[in-house]
Computed example of a mutant assay.
Amino acid sequence: MAGSECALVRHFVSKAPAAVYYIPEFITPQEETYLLNQVYGVPQTKWTQLSNRRLQNWGGLPHPKGMVLEDLPQWLKTYADQIAKLEVFEGKVPNHVLVNEYEAGQGIMPHVDGPLYFPVVSTISLGSHTLLDFYAPMPIEDAVHVSQAASTSFEDRFMCSILLQPRSLVLVCEDMYKVYLHGIVERKADTVTHDVANLEKCQGLTMGDCLDRARRVSLTIRHVPKTVKAKLLFGTKR
């Protein structure tokens, strides 16, 4: 791990709680185009439509009893292998990817990713920017009624934002993964303020800039530690 810490130290976001790493231009414009072509080249049946976005699931469905492991397609495995070389997954290779598509104005409620995953999440952004917002954890009594508390408690617990530019990679680790909530507010434009903790690592931006959102595709690349073979989970035919 020492070697990876040395490699990542210049990408550490010091103005955010531990630990967030932000790597701008992690992929090239040509790679971005290639990945978007792959995303939109899959059969429509691969998409799952949700109320605020749609997604593709690759690698299997995480489950407390174990994920039935499926091979990642090569266009995703290439980047899972690249991220594994950063050693943030402690020698493990990511085996699960969620492809999320957000139209301008769409987002996701503050949440934690939970214990089914190794406690690191890596995300490559394609097409458009967004602001990933972080919030202090909610008291248990509020968390039980999360839908009722959303309009007030989350806003009161806002900590900072990370600006995710196209082609960037963000790594969310340690307590920022395990404890703090993260989400994307549903709006069509973002204003650059002092709340953007990684602003010094973002090129071509100044305080007060207004950034219009467009369609964004995110590759959320993670490692699911507990996996099983299909025949062990479902049994074999006799």
Rank of each mutant, 00 (worst) to 15 (best):
L8F: 13
A18G: 08
V9E: 13
G107M: 09
L116M: 07
L132C: 03
I124S: 07
P24K: 09
P166D: 00
G60H: 06
Q165E: 12
L169N: 08
M138D: 05
K46R: 12
G208T: 09
D190N: 06
S218Q: 02
Y79V: 09
D209P: 01
S147D: 14
L116Y: 05
Y34H: 07
P24Q: 04
D175Q: 15
L126M: 06
D190F: 06
T152G: 01
Q56L: 08
R54K: 13
N37L: 06
F89A: 04
L163M: 06
V224L: 10
T220N: 12
E90L: 11
H11E: 03
V196N: 03
K46I: 04
K46D: 12
R215T: 14
V172P: 02
R215D: 01
I221A: 11
S51M: 02
S168D: 06
H111S: 02
V42Q: 14
S161N: 02
R10H: 14
P110I: 01
A84Y: 08
P115D: 00
P24I: 07
R54G: 05
T220Q: 10
R213I: 07
A189Q: 14
L36D: 03
R167Q: 01
E32H: 12
E200W: 14
I108M: 09
L55V: 12
W58E: 04
G127A: 07
W75T: 04
V144D: 10
E90M: 06
Y177M: 05
A16R: 10
Y34V: 00
N198P: 02
V144F: 06
M159R: 14
G60Y: 05
L50A: 05
V179E: 12
Y34P: 00
K85S: 11
G235S: 12
H111G: 02
I108L: 12
R215A: 01
G105P: 03
S4F: 03
R167W: 08
V179Q: 15
A136V: 00
T191H: 07
L86R: 04
E174T: 06
D156S: 14
L86S: 05
T193P: 00
Y177H: 10
L36I: 11
A230G: 01
A150K: 15
L233H: 07
A2H: 14
I27H: 06
C6V: 15
L55P: 00
S122N: 03
K201V: 02
L169T: 06
C160Y: 03
E186D: 07
Y21H: 10
I184G: 05
P17R: 14
N57K: 09
I83W: 04
S147Q: 13
R215H: 07
E70Q: 12
V97S: 10
K15Q: 04
D156W: 09
N57Q: 14
H96V: 02
M109E: 06
M176E: 01
K65P: 00
V68W: 10
F158W: 08
T206W: 08
I124V: 11
A197K: 13
M109V: 10
